[in-house]
Design a protein around this nucleic acid. Sequence first.
DNA 1: TAATATACGGACCATCAGTCCGCTATCACC
DNA 2: GGTGATAGCGGACTGATGGTCCGTATATTA
Lengths: 188, 188
Amino acid sequence: MRSDAARNRETVLAVAGRLFDEATDPDQVSMDAVAAAAGVGKGTLFRGFGDRAGLVAALWRQRGEELVTALTTAEQGPGPLRDRVLALLYAAQQFKLRNRTLALSLEKAGRGSPYGTDDYERWHRVLTALVAAARGPADAPHLAHALLAAVRADLLIHLGDRPENELRSGLEALVDAIVTGPGSARAR
Amino acid sequence: MRSDAARNRETVLAVAGRLFDEATDPDQVSMDAVAAAAGVGKGTLFRGFGDRAGLVAALWRQRGEELVTALTTAEQGPGPLRDRVLALLYAAQQFKLRNRTLALSLEKAGRGSPYGTDDYERWHRVLTALVAAARGPADAPHLAHALLAAVRADLLIHLGDRPENELRSGLEALVDAIVTGPGSARAR
DNA sequence: TAATATACGGACCATCAGTCCGCTATCACC
DNA sequence: GGTGATAGCGGACTGATGGTCCGTATATTA
């Protein structure tokens, strides 16, 4: 990769990140605006990232680094399953709140839905395994989807600026219900 | 209302409904296309429905008539709470599958999220009450959101054409977990 | 320093939602 | 049935946006 290309890529990522952070709706951030603010041409922007979704994905990957450790921790333990599930979802929740607009954009951009991305796939696999371990394989995939749906960015945003512990408490109730509820190995 | 306006409104609703049904992504249905297919001008379209969201809302209201009875039945009984919650969510699930693209459009259109509409408000209120009755008021609002998130159109579409009973079983597991799970009055 | 590949940038294009306004069909009243 | 007031019609037009194209500029390599 040529040095100027690398430099531009950095600049664009930094500037675009800032623009998304400042916006409340991803649609407020146009590709034109990103190019202008970064001081590059549109051609450069699209050459570097393919399309809008590519830019958002690159930003997400950059910031989401911290979540991979959350994933592997949840996957491999230690600790009770219930705590691992809760910690994972809580990490996702807080991360999405810290990166609202970006998260929103990602959930919209990926062909109109957050599903079908490798990312979602991965999260769903991990959660399915945990749920299956806790209460048996029956309906585990569905319940994993339900858990993920509960931390979707647009829902979190709709909930607004509630005290953090309220969000956490709600999440806890949900996880307890699913992981240790009826149908679970422990409850039987 | 003038007779030609009423006639046009009927035509547009019928044609637009068909176009949405035939499409797999709401974005495939442009306002231009609706106007052309209905044989009216764009001006007429926008005069009659305000904007795109208005058209979608009108279609939704027209088709969603059947759901209001599901809501009041769930609200007022009879039957065990668990069954009422399940029936309500199942009705929503099946309805959204029968009206995929329209449902998808609605979830996108309402300022980028399905929340904040009167419709969602209503459903959430009813479910919150049912959940609160079953397991106490703590976290009931959050759990109601989680239940609704589990029947979002884009999730259902992502799940694809599974056998209906698999969907139902997943929903049942979720409802059982939340309504009769830990924290619920019955379990304590 | 010359040659080549790579990247740049912004004019350009297609597509939409939504507006505007001169023209037309409807309807209430005669 | 005729007629005038007016609600409604339709399609050209606008503004914004994502994405493309290609002549020009720059980094790299020998």
